[in-house]
């Protein structure tokens, strides 16, 4: 394969994978916002649910980190 074109495609791909992190950002924001609106409606129940909040954030964030990982792999390992 031509080195120049391969290099170009690689960087374009890296840029595209960065979009995936935006999706994770939306997901995490959605979780935190919904938690907050629920917590404001019923503050007494909020304290018991922070663990669920963090679990949800962790799951949503993991997918963003996967896209980051793909970007890193493209950048450095391919």
């Amino acid at each position: 394969m031509e080195g120049e074109f391969a290099e170009m495609g690689k960087y374009i791909g890296v840029g595209l994978t960065a979009i995936g992190m935006g999706g994770a950002a939306i997901g995490v924001g959605n979780i935190a916002g919904n938690f907050l609106s629920g917590a404001l409606r019923n503050p007494s129940a909020a304290a018991g649910q922070t663990a669920m909040l963090f679990i949800g954030i962790a799951f949503a964030e993991a997918l963003g980190i996967f896209s980051f990982l793909v970007a890193l792999l493209l950048m450095f390992a391919v």
Partner: peptide
């Protein structure tokens, strides 16, 4: 996901 989440988050921040 358990392992990549931790390693990825750490790596991302430091990088």
């Amino acid at each position: 996901s358990h392992s990549i989440r931790l390693a990825g988050a750490m790596m991302a921040g430091h990088a």
